[in-house]
Design a protein around this nucleic acid. Sequence first.
DNA 1: GTTACTATTTTTAGCAA
DNA 2: GTTGCTAAAAATAGTAA
Lengths: 164, 164
Amino acid sequence: MTRRKVKLAFIVNNSSRKTTYKKRKRGLLKKAHEILTLCGIYAGAIIYSPYDPTPEVWPTVEGMKQVITTFRNLPEIDRHNNMFNQQEFVQQRITKADKLLLKKKKDNREVNLTEDMYRFLQIGQLTIPAGARDLNDLGYLVDQYLNSLNRRIQILKGGSDVEI
Amino acid sequence: MTRRKVKLAFIVNNSSRKTTYKKRKRGLLKKAHEILTLCGIYAGAIIYSPYDPTPEVWPTVEGMKQVITTFRNLPEIDRHNNMFNQQEFVQQRITKADKLLLKKKKDNREVNLTEDMYRFLQIGQLTIPAGARDLNDLGYLVDQYLNSLNRRIQILKGGSDVEI
DNA sequence: GTTACTATTTTTAGCAA
DNA sequence: GTTGCTAAAAATAGTAA
């Protein structure tokens, strides 16, 4: 019955560390969800761990759509609708790719984890398919992004005073 | 002295919503930090709000470097060192670009927020400079990413059984 | 708008089954 | 490994200055 105050330091014992991780992960995701509900503000959490096959991301796709809907209802953003449509489509591809990835990742966990970290630091929670068959999906995502980017660059170069 | 249990629903009152947001944001980031310290596991939080000029990201650059160091010390990842070097360099560019962005964002908050959301859903916490002068930085980042991507695609096509 | 305070709620560390 | 339990710690809603 010793529930002493815990010191904020790395937990050496493997099993208690994992237990603590699982409990606190749940807590963190719950908190993030509460901020969205209470304040209507986007808060996301991304967790990488050796215990989960894929990085854990909140919000889920449904959460993202909820945020998108909110933004759509803001005034003055009608001209952005095409963006959001494209974005939802891209998101669909990401989800599909994520599922493929989950199936394929069976071993090589440590290397995969390193890869995930590398990808994250460069492009955030976009999970890139690692198998050759998925590279088309990957190329597609990048193309989509570059296209939208170039469009916005052109607008700027054209001297429009609309800040993208 | 009425500290009643709060119902989990959108807070209509503007000022209390903002106050709650600020308090909870601090709590969320603290929790994320604790998970890293206690469990050595990466946990990041990303918050978009109309109250902050730029999306709030945890961990900071120092936190990322800490994680990178951990990964470097894993066995079997020596061949990934170049990746991490490149990645740190890219991260530096991102930080620099973020600072520029912070200076330039003075108004047009709502549109900017929409843009941030759009970018986030596509490429995560990479914050893209919105001003024309920053577009070179942006192009550079994308080029860097594409180069690393192409390299990995070539490796796969070459039939190596090393899963990148 | 800040803080600072604190009653109350919520999270959670350590155990037990 | 998993639950469920609960005392203790931490977060926080409401208030005041």
